[in-house]
Design a protein around this nucleic acid. Structure first.
Length: 107
DNA sequence: TTAATGACCTATC
DNA sequence: CGATAGGCCATTA
C-alpha cells in the first residue's frame, strides 16, 4: 500500500539514540524533499510507536507540535532527556547539537 | 473524480 | 518577531 510510509518509517527508524531529525530531513532522506507533510501524516498514523520513535522527529524549529504530545509534552521531554537530549522547557531542542546528519538517514 | 485535511516548509507583510 | 498566505504530497470522504 503506502510504499511512501514504509520509506518514511525506515528513515525514522534510522535515527540514532540521542539524536533528532526534522521532517524536512526525513522527507529528503526518503527520496522526496516535498514529503514533509506526508511525513507528519505518516507519523500520525504511526502503526508501531515502539519501533518508530516519533518523539525523535521535530519540526524546523526543533520543536514538536502540541497536538502530537501523545502522553503530554512532559512525556516527550522525559523520553528525549532519557536518551541524553536536552529539551527546553518550551519543548525546543538544540538542532545544531542533536540533529542527525541527513546522509546517515539515507544509508 | 473533486474537494478537503494535515504531527510541514518557505516566503512575505 | 508574530501573523498570513501559498505550495508541496498522500490519504480520506
Amino acid at each position: 500500500m503506502g510504499n511512501v510510509f514504509e520509506k518514511i518509517y525506515e528513515v525514522v527508524r534510522k535515527i540514532p539514540e540521542g539524536k533528532v531529525a526534522t521532517y524536512g530531513q526525513i522527507a529528503y532522506a526518503a527520496g522526496n524533499a516535498h514529503w514533509a507533510r506526508v511525513v507528519g501524516y505518516a507519523l500520525h498514523v504511526n502503526p508501531d510507536p515502539q519501533k518508530i520513535k516519533c518523539y525523535r522527529v521535530v519540526n524546523r524549529d526543533g520543536r514538536i507540535s502540541p497536538a502530537f504530545a501523545f502522553g503530554g509534552e512532559n512525556r516527550q521531554r522525559t523520553l528525549l532527556k532519557n536518551e541524553g537530549v536536552s529539551v527546553d522547557k518550551d519543548g525546543f531542542v538544540d538542532l545544531e547539537k542533536y540533529r542527525v546528519d541527513t546522509f546517515l538517514l539515507m544509508i
